[in-house]
């Protein structure tokens, strides 16, 4: 089966600045694919090229088998895009926003009305259909933008940081809706700088930084590859840190290692018995966190920096 998105050596420059610096990736039909990276990684620039809003500088990019350089209209007709910043029509009602949008896709009026009802219900906005945009909460606006992106029944739904700025409850509701859409067979591409979002939702993801792809794979695979299963996270003062390092360093062996990032010490791949020992050494269990490794640790390992500053 052809890929939904296929990028080879994809580049986007602004003047001399390389916002996307030669990335390769492939998204299969039906997949929930993530792009994980901090602000400025080049996620939005990549998405804007995929959705044929800006031209590619170099490389090759195909969406649903079509070349973005020549088939912009045909590609856009198959996409739904949820941009990073809400750009709803403030002066129009919830329903009117969707009606206006459906017209750009030439959806016949009656069919549009059906889909809009469906979309509003799916996003739990059916009671809000006649309200002004300004009367909606942040989470409702996001869900409305998702509903808007569905009016043309897209084969590929692209979401740029869909939950940035939302409170935890609103986030979880958005996540639930996205999982539902995946179950219905929509291919989803999502960008985020939240590692928990990427880990929760994505079948597969690409880790980006400074316009480059660091690696891609399943979240669990990446975690196992770079970090192992468990992490010991230590919040220590200088004296305690010296004590712990004196104990750990001779015992690290082949598979374990220590990273110091800002004031936090991360110990990867350490056996359980040593973890106990370290806890004893520090004495205060709240500052020794023995936890499962996550994508944040992958990013830390790959770049030496945190995802969200």
């Amino acid at each position: 089966m052809p890929a939904m998105i296929e990028a080879h050596g994809l580049v986007k420059t602004f003047g001399d600045f390389r916002a996307v610096d030669g990335i390769d990736f492939r998204v299969e039909a039906g997949e929930f694919f993530g792009m994980l990276g901090p602000n400025g990684a080049g996620k939005t620039s990549t998405i804007r090229m995929i959705s044929c809003v800006v031209p590619i500088t170099a490389g090759a990019l195909q969406v649903d088998g079509l070349d973005v350089r020549y088939e912009d209209r045909a590609i856009k007709a198959r996409l739904g895009v949820v941009p990073q910043d809400d750009n709803l029509d403030q002066d129009l009602s919830v329903r009117k926003n969707l009606e206006v949008y459906a017209r750009y896709y030439d959806v016949p009026k009656r069919l549009a009305r059906e889909r809009i009802d469906e979309g509003l219900e799916l996003m739990q906005l059916q009671d809000r259909a006649d309200e002004r945009i300004s009367a909606l909460s942040g989470g409702m606006k996001r869900r409305l933008v998702v509903a808007r992106a569905l009016v043309n029944e897209p084969r590929l739904l692209i979401l740029d940081e869909p939950t940035t700025g939302l409170d935890p409850q609103a986030r979880h509701l958005v996540w639930r809706k996205l999982r539902l859409l995946r179950e219905r067979g929509v291919t989803i591409l999502l960008t985020t700088h939240y590692m928990d979002e990427a880990e929760h939702l994505c079948d597969r993801l690409i880790v980006m930084d400074h316009g480059r792809a660091l690696d891609d794979g399943r979240p669990r695979t990446l975690i196992e590859r770079y970090v192992g299963r468990d992490v010991l996270e230590l919040h220590l003062n200088d004296e305690e840190r010296a004590r712990v390092r004196a104990y750990l360093d001779p015992r690290l062996g082949e598979s374990a290692r220590v990273e110091q990032i800002e004031d936090v010490t991360y110990v990867y791949g350490l056996g359980q018995e040593h973890a106990r020992e370290v806890e004893e050494l520090v004495g205060d269990h709240y500052r020794v966190i023995d936890r499962r490794a996550n994508l944040e640790d992958v990013f830390l390992t790959l770049t030496g920096r945190a995802l969200v500053e």
Partner: peptide
Amino acid sequence: MATTTSTPTTEAPPEPPSGRRRGGV
């Protein structure tokens, strides 16, 4: 760098369909 199943194929991108221009320009 280690890669997973997602290794992209290395086929050249297809030629532009005849008569098509970038963005219709």
